[in-house]
């Protein structure tokens, strides 16, 4: 789980245009404006490629994507072998 979270931290820091000094695993990444619409689309591409998961339309809810913690849990649900 920690490895996935570290990968996610690295991705978010690399790909946001916002300051990430205070970024925590429970920071609300969309509420805080860390990613916008394009950022969300790119994040989904990254998750699908990196973690070999498929996000269905029904998966695209806040509880799966609101923070790094939430995304890590979502990845675990989708691909338990990874974590």
């Amino acid at each position: 789980m920690d490895t996935v979270k570290n990968e996610l931290f690295a991705y978010v820091k690399e790909n946001t245009f916002k300051e990430t000094d205070t970024l925590q695993s429970d920071t609300k990444i969309f509420v805080e404006g860390i990613f916008d619409s394009m950022g969300f689309a790119l994040l989904l591409d990254f998750l699908e490629t990196k973690f070999q998961i498929q996000a269905e339309d029904s998966d695209l809810v806040e509880e799966n994507f609101e923070s790094i913690d939430a995304i890590a849990e979502f990845i675990q649900k989708k691909n338990p072998a990874l974590v």
Binding site: S37, G39, F40, A41, L60, V61, E62, F65
Partner: peptide
């Protein structure tokens, strides 16, 4: 077109 993922969602819309 854009589509919001669920009413009240704070996620940005996706095309």
């Amino acid at each position: 077109g854009i589509k919001h993922e669920g009413k009240g969602s704070k996620l940005p819309p996706l095309f």
